[in-house]
């Protein structure tokens, strides 16, 4: 179904470190790495206010990319560009190009609803619909017409809940209201809901900030498992979390992407001074 597009161009396959002062430092992928999504020169404006300035980043397939940075730095804004949730906000304007598998997701022929079916999203605060657990997970497959019969849907629901490692906990009360679950369970339900439509990319906007450490650990374990099947981009303000779960990390600062690279490199040997200051806790 999905054609895998490898970045074969010599330019992209070379490992280039652009070290222009104040400009973004982009670590280009090594040869053979799949690039799932890619942003080129993305700027976002809310009315007259510029929220993002000239962001370019590649998102590697089947990896976890963490976006970190102080609050208000634009990392969540950037995340919402990837499934066009910024369209919902009035007065939001986006320049630049964002592609998924080489295809411009802002092209006129793209159906936004279908795009969001393939780029799922999990929010900061768990937001289960005021329906039953079952109906929450079945919501996506139903609207996207993935399954017609009840047993097909049931199968998808069970599979998604299992993948989100929630099934065992809720299998006896699938038709109880989802709002009765604990916060951590709700967030895993939201993940199950998002993966029920079998997306290729999963965006997670600080998914653990409203959860306690134990629930957080469970979600992090889950992400580790999910990365086998999905490309995950996670926005987090917790540097520990970024270093624990991600393979690649991008550091946002005041609307610009200051540095991006492997998580190891960013945390152990940051090139940019701002990154170093942030990671060592000088500000944040």
């Amino acid at each position: 179904m999905s054609s895998v597009m490898t970045a074969e161009t010599t330019e992209a396959s070379e490992k280039v470190i652009n070290q222009v002062q104040d400009g973004p430092i982009v670590v280009r992928p090594e040869k053979g790495v799949d690039i799932k999504m890619s942003a080129e020169g993305v700027s976002v404006f809310y009315g007259d206010k510029q929220a993002l300035d000239d962001i370019s980043i590649d998102i590697h397939s089947k990896q976890i990319t963490a976006l970190i940075g102080p609050s208000g730095c634009g990392k969540s804004t950037f995340l919402r560009c990837l499934n066009r949730m910024n369209d919902v906000v009035g007065g939001c304007r986006i320049n630049g190009r964002i592609t998924m598998d080489g295809e411009d997701i802002y092209a006129p022929r793209v159906d936004v609803a279908s795009l969001r079916g393939q780029v799922g999203m999990v929010f900061q605060k768990p937001n289960p619909f005021p329906k039953s657990i079952f109906d929450n997970v079945a919501y996506g497959p139903r609207i996207h017409g993935y399954a017609q019969h009840r047993d097909e849907i049931e199968e998808i629901v069970v599979r998604s809940l299992s993948k989100a490692s929630l099934f065992e906990e809720v299998k006896d009360r699938l038709h109880d209201p989802a709002t009765g679950l604990s916060g951590g369970q709700q967030q895993r339900l939201c993940i199950a809901r998002a993966i029920a439509v079998n997306p290729e990319v999963l965006l997670m906007d600080e998914p653990c900030s409203a959860l306690d450490p134990i629930a957080t650990a469970r979600i992090e374990d889950l992400m580790w498992e999910l990365k086998e099947k999905f490309t995950i981009i996670i926005v987090t303000h917790s540097m520990q979390q970024a270093s624990r779960v991600s393979q690649r990390t991008g550091f946002f600062h005041m609307g610009v992407l200051a540095e991006v690279g492997t998580t190891e490199q960013i945390f152990q040997n940051p090139v940019d001074n701002r990154t170093r200051d942030y990671i060592t806790g000088r500000f944040g």
Partner: peptide, 14 residues
């Protein structure tokens, strides 16, 4: 490739 189910998309947009 961004997936389309042309028929469904048309129906939903209608």
């Amino acid at each position: 490739m961004i997936l389309f189910n042309e028929k469904l998309v048309r129906k939903r947009n209608r």
